[in-house]
Design a protein around this nucleic acid. Structure first.
Lengths: 144, 144
DNA sequence: ATTGGTGCAAAGTATTTGCACACTT
DNA sequence: AAGTGTGCAAATACTTTGCACCAAT
């Protein structure tokens, strides 16, 4: 059970914002909740729809402002898939994704060698590696 | 010397278009040339500027139409960096990139284990893997 | 002669920003 | 009370598309 639960993530993000001089509004909390819970790597639009169920007045601009903030704080990861941004708030640590060109769903991919690869690359190139984006494109079993 | 030369790439792309029912216009050839030769992973805008040196009438729309075509044919790879698309025509085989957050340049990264990682992932998940995007973010030696 | 390619301009998308007001602290 | 966050609308940035004309085959 080393993986953090959804609730841990929500709490972590809330605490992180409170630690800064950031305010906790109902809309913002709702966005955090979606990001902490969703396994779908939702787009801004998708987050908006879910949040709207509870807070119908919420604007898309607010979603964007919130994800931009969380991105800067390193609490969520942005990935671009098929021309749009998707957000991963469940696991802010670097990891890789598996994207199905059929259903367009994104799931996390376990690649144990990422760390080793990054280290080797840094050694060979002299770059200071600060992040990686390792996404695989494929067709999931159901779509085949 | 197993790596293809720029000229090989240009010829390969030209041949590929001719093999289809595609026409070879001066503008199109100029775009192919930039893609075959540039190590900069140029944006559409950057390709446009270079092509314009020889063919000042060339429109940005033509650049986009050509890269879209080449992308569909699998002759070039599109990568999104910092919100814009860049194109890699020198090496259409899957490989990874190193992006410097300082100078925004992109270079190819040699990662020998990619194939092994992909294979393992396919075996474990049941996905048919048809592509990968392995990009590293870092600070190059000069920018550090 | 055909019909695909080009340039132009307009339309689309996705995301960001300015501003007045509301709400958290 | 102070000042951040919000919603709205406009702006921005990038890419795509429609159309009439041009040119490669």
């Amino acid at each position: 059970m080393s993986e953090p639960t959804q609730n841990d993530r929500l709490t972590a993000m809330v605490d992180r914002l409170k630690a800064g001089e950031y305010r906790m509004t109902p809309q913002r909390r709702a966005v955090l909740k979606v990001l902490a819970e969703s396994r779908r790597h939702p787009t801004a639009e998708e987050i908006h729809e879910v949040v709207r169920a509870d807070f119908p007045m919420t604007s898309l601009a607010t979603i964007y402002k919130t994800v931009t903030l969380l991105k800067e704080l390193g609490e969520i990861v942005e990935l671009r898939v098929a021309g749009r941004c998707r957000y991963d708030g469940r696991n802010p640590a670097p990891h890789s994704h598996l994207f199905c060109v059929g259903c367009e769903r994104v799931v996390d991919a376990e690649v144990k060698t990422v760390h080793a690869v990054t280290e080797g690359l840094a050694r060979r190139t002299g770059y200071r590696i600060i992040g990686q984006r390792i996404d695989f494109l494929g067709v999931c079993p159901e779509c085949q």
